[in-house]
Design a protein around this nucleic acid. Structure first.
Lengths: 139, 139
DNA sequence: GTTCCTGCAAAAGCTTTGCAGAAGA
DNA sequence: TCTTCTGCAAAGCTTTTGCAGGAAC
């Protein structure tokens, strides 16, 4: 998971996104943190090594990644956007005690649905909530 | 779907919520508008007949309904909470062209999942996005 | 050289909170 | 009577936007 600047730059070029130092760092962060960070977490972490980085750049960058299909938004909660660069379809579980978000395997593309004849589906999300094993043990 | 004040009041009492005129009207609105309204839509609609109604009351009321399990939040988008009083599990489809949210049938409780041994699951949501038939025709 | 991006500040939008007066039990 | 709710205003948060200087192509 340690891609070089050149590789990441090529990845961006493939999706039609111009290279910039900030974008490379955000991309790098997402690829090494698959834990669905918030924009603020990304900003705070990168800010240590890039004091000039601004939060709007983080948002702009994330939005261009989303538009390019590189990143998906995890909208499991309304007041916080979380960003996920993994491509394979999977579900998200949010622990209501500790707030952590876990991935879980689910064959989302083959869920049997009714009432959607004639709909063009572009995006599928499966969200579960509850308590994770760690919190169950500690509770 | 035209419940009386008395019936709605009893419904609230069953869930441990005190009766008030405002709460009855919000509940009534939710029961007659299964289209997943936003807090603002509820507020604007009720405000015509209740000029003194405030938005914080709508939010407070919705939050007490949620806590009581009467209402679920549809978090398909991050910047807007939508409220749904229907109990039976179903999926939500959001049209990215017109913004409408449709219900669709899906056996959410029987989706096959991996990696969740030991997790206590209390809530399941299935969200699809795309273009609805009406917008496909008009586009 | 042109176009697009960054960073700053300010603004926008949704939701929550504090408090005094009012209504419910 | 005592508790809880309402409405107003203000604040809190996350996210977006406008603009001037700067970087990418």
């Amino acid at each position: 998971m340690k891609e070089s600047y050149k590789e990441l730059s090529a990845l961006l070029a493939n999706t039609g996104i111009r290279t910039s130092y900030q974008r490379i760092r955000v991309l790098e962060y997402l690829m090494s943190h698959l834990c669905h960070p918030t924009a603020d977490q990304i900003y705070c972490s990168l800010h240590d090594r890039m004091p000039a980085l601004s939060k709007s750049t983080v948002y702009n960058t994330l939005n261009s990644f989303i538009e390019a299909g590189l990143v998906k938004v995890v909208a499991i909660e309304n007041n916080e956007s979380r960003y996920d660069i993994r491509v394979k379809a999977h579900g998200h579980f949010k622990c209501e005690a500790c707030g952590a978000i876990y991935d879980f395997g689910a064959d989302i593309d083959n869920i049997e649905v009714k009432d959607l004849d004639g709909f063009q589906i572009s995006d599928k999300h499966l969200y579960f909530k509850g308590i994770c094993p760690r919190c169950l043990d500690n509770g």
